[in-house]
């Protein structure tokens, strides 16, 4: 890949002493959209959290290079400042802190310099409009009392404001109603630039109907067991995970010493 943004090699990750990722390899270039699918508990969120630098997810082996730099020693804020973004599966609420205050601070932190009020406001309201969010949300406390769908929208709003180079979206589609899914997906597409790499974690084809991936990967028991094009997602939608898993069962048995 000529312009590789993110290169993951042999990544192993443990949580509370339990190994969850067993050697993940993945390369994402600018302008590419990668979908990561896989059954519940296969390690998708673990991968996302480990990439962002969550202190509880311990990297026990492998390398992660982002824009040519080894980022594993960096704290999460430094990774964000380098241009990495994670849209959370379960965003946290921060009582008493308004969205507008939070977003302003985040934008300033990621840029490393003050953002003129006017520029910030314009960007905020334009992005809110794009995501069909009521301006009133800017005054509300971060994720406090937001519905599931509103939280997901707010995550994409943050992505729009922070303008990352690589965006990982962890089940951004879950919790969204049909119209909201379309709005958010169209929003993501509008925010997509040739410089942006996207990793979409999802269970459903319906999101991929809007945001078209060039690559689809299947994560199973902490490994990417299959990679392909958009047709792989369609195949999963039709047949489920079993055929893919069966195909890789011998390899998994060899690797883990137990039956998959």
């Amino acid at each position: 890949m000529a312009d590789t943004l993110l290169t993951i090699e042999g990544l192993t990750v443990s949580v509370e002493g339990k190994q969850i990722l067993n050697g993940v390899d993945l390369a994402v270039g600018r302008g590419e959209v990668h979908a990561i699918m896989g059954p519940n508990g296969s390690g998708k969120s673990t991968l996302a959290n480990a990439l962002m630098g969550h202190p509880r997810y311990q990297v026990t082996g492998g390398t992660v290079r982002f824009k040519g730099e080894d980022i594993l020693a960096l704290s999460p804020d430094k990774r964000a400042q380098r241009g990495l973004f994670l849209a959370f599966q379960y965003p946290m609420s921060i009582p008493g802190v308004t969205m507008v205050n939070f977003l302003r601070q985040a934008m300033k932190a990621v840029r490393g310099e003050d953002v003129p009020v006017r520029e910030f406001r314009e960007k905020l309201f334009a992005t809110m409009k794009l995501l069909k969010m009521d301006q009133e949300f800017a005054r509300r406390y971060v994720n406090e009392g937001f519905s599931g769908g509103e939280k997901k929208r707010a995550e994409i709003l943050q992505m729009g404001i922070l303008d990352p180079d690589l965006a990982i979206m962890d089940e951004t589609d879950s919790g969204l109603d049909i119209d909201a899914l379309r709005t958010v997906a169209e929003g993501v597409n509008a925010l997509t630039t040739p410089k942006l790499g996207v990793v979409l974690i999802t269970h459903y084809q319906r999101l991929l109907n809007y945001i078209k991936p060039q690559f689809v990967h299947i994560l199973y028991q902490g490994r990417i067991i299959e990679s392909g094009g958009p047709e792989l997602a369609l195949q999963l939608e039709a047949e489920g995970y079993d055929p893919v898993i069966e195909k890789y069962a011998p390899a998994l048995v060899a690797a883990t010493g137990e039956k998959a």
């Binding site: 962002m52 630098g53 969550h54 202190p55 704290s75 999460p76 804020d77 990774r79 964000a80 400042q81 973004f85 994670l86 959370f88 965003p91 946290m92 921060i94 009582p95 008493g96 802190v97 205050n101 939070f102 601070q105 985040a106 932190a109 990621v110 406390y141 971060v142 943050q158 922070l162």
Partner: peptide, 20 residues
């Protein structure tokens, strides 16, 4: 972690939580 993932240092993140 949530606030740090948005670029805020640990100290700034703590301050924001306290202010809230």
């Amino acid at each position: 972690f949530y606030l740090q993932s948005r670029g805020l240092s640990e100290v700034d993140a703590t301050k924001l939580i306290v202010n809230g």
